[in-house]
Amino acid sequence: MADDMEVEAEREGCGYQKNDKMFTLKKWNLVAMWSWDVECDTCAICRVQVMDACLRCQAENKQDDCVVVWGECNHSFHNCCMTLWVKQNNRCPLCQQDWVVQRIGK
């Protein structure tokens, strides 16, 4: 597939662009940093940054499974922290609105 693209690029380079473009981009190596799209970067339940796994998952070495959950109120927590929380109290710990999951990160 990569070869196909190169051939294509080659053809384009030799074609209509030849006279007006001295520099043609052939390969591009791009770097991006991802993070959870959250308003507050600390989980209010376990006090650990949401980018790190919650303490429970760190201890059990399940860092990769520790995702973030957003409520309708747009507050976010570790999904596992929130799962435990709602068993006692089905409200958002920050705004006391009824907890409704908006989305779960993956």
Binding site: A9, G13, K18, K21, M22, F23, T24, L25, K26, K27, W28, N29, L30, V31, A32, M33, W34, S35, W36, D37, V67, V68, W70, R103, I104, G105, K106
Partner: peptide
């Protein structure tokens, strides 16, 4: 790419890091 990626991973945001990018340029 961003659209593709965020479609696969919801709840994430991407921040581009131009300092680390590199390219191959064809020059005439």
């Amino acid at each position: 790419f961003k659209k593709f990626y965020l479609g696969k991973h919801s709840g994430r945001k991407l921040q581009w890091q131009p300092t680390l990018g590199h390219c191959v340029l064809k020059v005439e």
